[in-house]
Design a protein around this nucleic acid. Sequence first.
DNA 1: AAAGATTGATTGATCAATCTTC
DNA 2: GAAGATTGATCAATCAATCTTT
Lengths: 173, 173
Amino acid sequence: MAIPSSSVSADERLTTIGLLFESSAGLRRLFGRNLEEAGVHTSQSFDILIRLARSEGNELRMSELASQASLTPSGLTRAVDRLQGQGLVVRRTCPEDRRGSFAQLTPGGRQLMADSLPGHVAQINRILEDVFAPEEMDQFSAMLQRLRDYTQAQNASTGCPGADEATDPCTEG
Amino acid sequence: MAIPSSSVSADERLTTIGLLFESSAGLRRLFGRNLEEAGVHTSQSFDILIRLARSEGNELRMSELASQASLTPSGLTRAVDRLQGQGLVVRRTCPEDRRGSFAQLTPGGRQLMADSLPGHVAQINRILEDVFAPEEMDQFSAMLQRLRDYTQAQNASTGCPGADEATDPCTEG
DNA sequence: AAAGATTGATTGATCAATCTTC
DNA sequence: GAAGATTGATCAATCAATCTTT
């Protein structure tokens, strides 16, 4: 009682991490419902499509996309296979380095994003406005940014998915 | 420029959600390394074990455990099968309602938690102290708590895993 | 030999269907 | 018939190994 703020107990900090995990899982479920109705199969698919949609030329290198989507290279290969099967994405061999390839949004993929994004953004706004006061939003975002950067840096030491030097703020899910 | 705080753009809010997802995935990867060294197979296993460890009698009903761990009933059945196979958990039929059962930590399971928890807590403390100022911690936790509660309430409307009325603050991962 | 990407084998999670008990 | 839990079938992600290009 009346212990200063640095006294946050171990239990409380464990709980904080648990809340982060549960929030993430809960949001994915909420989004999943609406995205499916909008024609996007899963929240993970959307995660990939939106990053392509927000990139120059609607395309990204496989390795960078894997990193941004928190997937291993093989995981991304399979995800892009599925999206290609749905006609939303195509592969393009990188002309300067023929080992690499780009994943690129098709016109159909762009259309799907154009159709589904407004509803998704509206849902996000509704949630965030219900939960946070306006001045809290920026704080929350800034804290998450630091936490994300920290985990990326730590994971980078040992070559992990989602451990990119990515300065790119294009980071949605 | 100089637009008030409520003008946070759609892109910024999309990014906030993306940061939350990436933070969650990044933390799971960081924890996974250390937990594996400590003898816990995955971050998901730990998620289940710690909830049992922090519950009365080291046991919890399957349905409640599923909800707390953000798993479907069948997902939890399989997870408990694995933990039982490792000798960390046993099932106990509920005497008052023979449809239900409890998952309960074995002595070996309790020992494993006793051995691995200190290191895990230390890792969490290190991360949170590196990333956040002391006074930010409580804010961050409180914001996540509201977000978690909100998503649970929303998902509850349609019967989803992790959508519990759970007032229980035992919530780690 | 190292980097980018893919494939095969395995593990983990989900949905739909089923079984038992209420 | 509904609730708690499990099983079968399927899908998605990972690791280890492989192929191509550098």
